[in-house]
Design a protein around this nucleic acid. Structure first.
Lengths: 228, 228
DNA sequence: GAAAATCTTAAGAATTACATAAAGAGTTTG
DNA sequence: CAAACTCTTTATGTAATTCTTAAGATTTTC
């Protein structure tokens, strides 16, 4: 995420820059409105922190100018704590207003809040939880499994075992581990039980169960899903 | 635009209500978190103003709960001006934070700022509130359900269940999930209750309830509406 | 290459989850 | 306040899944 920090006081720009870089953001710096506009035009900026009082072009006019072309979140930053300025700033298109001096943690929280809204809006629950290896796909939200595009049906236990394995592709799970993770209880005599389920899963997902392509045994250790 | 104002101090709710109604907004009022959640579920709310300290359920928990289902702008409103609370509020999903006492003009400016962002961003969501799959259509605005053009009648609980499922087509919901989302309370012994309602819904929306076309069971997991 | 260990396969019994019907409790409506 | 409707509970039937048992096949060990 790229953030533009614009203030004529270089010390403030640097300080904010350090806080935000610690959070993993990429920082662009400007010291007046003209520079800020140029930077937004030449780079993909995801959020702007804009001081109001600046030489050349002040933050209010710069904000209006930026808003002509961009819809990114913009937080105003100013020593003026008078309400009139806040209201003006918010009315011309700022998304938030922070008065100096400010608590760095609050600044970061507000930046994150704006970015969260900007990036996740409309995509509430876009996490689809899909695991895949080779032609084997498992959609955990819809509880649907497909092999080479063809939908197959697994029973609940079979599904849980397969999901455990495919969620950690390549990792070998012992029979005890599988039993405990899937059943959520200590394994009593899991060998046969688990192996029967493995068999059933193979019947369904493997073209040739004798030579499994996905669900492989590791002799004396356990089973794994091959990472393809 | 509908705005929910939630505060246990009725005087504040009314005052805010007057300011916002003057701006042309429709106001909904709640005096604690539980009421707030109910209102967001039963009405189309576009913005929430949420106090933090309230009886029954505080604003922090109410915000988290609302965020599970809704992505609308939410402004926190609190006498606590300590930074910690601001940061917490913003981090759990609030879009803004205003400390009491506040300037009404600032409040309005922040409300407008949030709504501007919410409505213009991503051409937001001319949410039609009409869900459809195959010949099954549910118009949540008018609360009307049709199957192949023919209108059918569902009871409130049946309606909520069906809406939950069809709003997330293909997604499987466990019986517990259904119970908790629809009844808004922890599931005590939901199996029978839910399955009876499922039966009733099927009687009404399925041509042949024995072989449901829309409302399918996923064995050992839950129910889903088939995405057609 | 034989013995031991590990894994695979099959089928039926036991268990669990779901479907359905019907009755009683609670709620709303006229 | 009675009728109608809705929701929940109980009981029973049905279908799907899981477990157990046990024999056969494969791999490893000595």
């Amino acid at each position: 995420m790229n953030i533009l920090v614009c203030d004529d006081d270089k010390a403030i720009v640097d300080a904010i820059g350090i806080y935000l870089e610690n959070e993993g953001y990429q920082i662009f710096k400007a010291s007046n409105g003209v520079e800020a506009i140029e930077i937004t035009q030449e780079n993909e900026i995801h959020l702007v922190l804009m001081d109001i009082m600046m030489p050349k072009m002040d933050g209010i006019r710069a904000t209006m100018k930026i808003r002509e072309d961009h819809n990114i979140p913009l937080i105003m930053l100013s020593a003026k704590s008078e309400d009139y300025d806040k209201i003006l700033g918010l009315n011309i298109g700022a998304d938030d207003y922070i008065t100096k001096p400010f608590n760095p943690l609050e600044l970061i929280a507000r930046v994150k809040s704006q970015l969260r809204r900007y990036t996740t809006l409309g995509s509430l629950e876009m996490k689809t939880n899909v695991y895949q290896t080779g032609g084997l796909v498992i959609d955990d939200e819809r509880k649907v499994i497909t092999v080479d595009g063809e939908e197959i049906h697994l029973t609940p236990v079979q599904y849980k075992i397969l999901k455990l394995l495919i969620a950690n592709p390549g990792k070998v799970f012992s029979i005890e581990e599988i039993y405990e993770k899937v059943w959520n209880e200590p394994a009593y005599n899991p060998e046969n039980t688990v192996s029967v389920h493995i068999r059933k899963i193979r019947e369904k997902i493997e073209i040739n169960p004798k030579e499994p392509k996905y669900l492989k045994v590791v002799w004396g250790v356990g089973y794994k899903i091959e990472k393809i």
